[in-house]
């Protein structure tokens, strides 16, 4: 039943497990934000989208299996889909509002955080207590006799989807016509307009698609790990993921690394405490932020601006 003690090996294992389990929400939100920002808009509201996604996924998964008689193998997937769609609705609101003349997208984003979390809390009241069927996992650890390893290697198919999506998105930006449109709109809207591309339409689609991904990120939280709906489930992960895009220099593949890194860093504190390292607990819990600061300091340079930043980011349409 219980595992034999792993001792210090538990720390790297715990971090690995945290990376595999905890990074999916970061990954989806940062990829969604990456797509949005590439088109020249910022969507801070993804924190609200993440919460709405988590709530709707959990609610639908529970309702579908308990009330509508849909088998538990299907209902979580239905939840994931609905979470994505709920994200798209919030994304549409953001896209529509933030493209009105003289509207600041950061201000709209903050409003959308409040709106998204408010919606999620309001409709989520009834779903805090029930238990919803969870997404299936792919068990890669069955070769090992150790339950700790088996548990660490229970990977969500959504995570694999996210990992595959990152290089796919990089390829999309680099090598496709549509990717070129997105980059053009984000870097130089005037040039895009001259090319005959509708700036509004491209941004609208990018924001909606990005919010779809963020909604799925929410589903990872509520249907995979930690696998429940509570109002504090995101604890700021959506906002961190938005910051992570800057950290990853607007590159989807680097978003993947950054997400893995943040997911793993989250687990450092608990893993070290479990082997009895109690000194500097606060420092370990603050690890993700400290590491981010360090990397920012190391990689920054006074001689050039942030490379990779879309040119039109942060400008207000007149």
């Amino acid at each position: 039943m219980a595992a034999e003690a792993l001792g210090w090996w538990g720390v790297p294992l715990g971090i690995l497990a945290g990376t595999l389990r905890g990074s999916a929400p970061f990954l989806f939100v940062s990829l969604g934000e990456c797509l949005t920002e590439k088109s020249g808009k910022i969507n801070l509201g993804l924190e609200g989208t993440l919460l709405t996604g988590a709530m709707s996924a959990y609610a639908i998964s529970y309702l579908a299996s308990d009330k509508w008689g849909i088998p538990t193998s299907v209902s979580p997937w239905l939840g994931v889909l609905v979470a994505g769609c709920a994200g798209m609705i919030l994304g549409f609101i953001h896209a529509w509002l933030s493209q009105q003349p003289k509207v600041n997208d950061i201000a709209v984003g903050i409003a959308m955080i409040i709106f998204g979390s408010g919606i999620a809390f309001y409709f989520g009241k009834a779903f805090i207590q029930p238990k919803a069927p969870q997404l299936p996992t792919i068990d890669l650890g069955n070769w090992s006799a150790m339950p700790a390893v088996q548990s660490a290697l229970k990977i969500s198919p959504l995570f694999i989807f996210g990992v595959l999506l990152a290089p796919l998105m990089a390829w999309f930006f680099k090598s496709t016509r549509w990717g070129l449109f997105v980059r053009a709109v984000g870097d130089s809207p005037d040039a895009a307009l001259a090319m005959g591309v509708s700036i509004k339409r491209v941004r609208m689609l990018c924001i909606i698609a990005g919010s779809f991904l963020a909604g799925i990120g929410g589903a990872c939280l509520s249907l995979y790990y930690p696998g429940l709906w509570s109002e504090s489930i995101s604890s700021g992960q959506g906002l961190m993921a938005v910051a992570l895009v800057i950290f990853a220099r607007w590159n989807p593949v680097q978003c993947l690394w950054a997400s893995l890194f943040f997911g793993g860093a989250q687990a450092i504190g608990p893993a070290l405490q479990s082997v009895g390292v109690d000194q500097g607990r606060y420092l370990f819990n603050a690890m993700p932020y400290i590491l981010t600061l360090l990397i920012m300091i190391i990689t920054c340079s006074p001689k050039k601006t942030l490379s990779g930043a879309p040119g039109a980011l942060g400008t207000i349409n007149g």
Partner: peptide, 8 residues
């Protein structure tokens, strides 16, 4: 999970 890994 970390506690479980350590055999608690």
């Amino acid at each position: 999970n970390s506690l479980a890994d350590q055999g608690f």
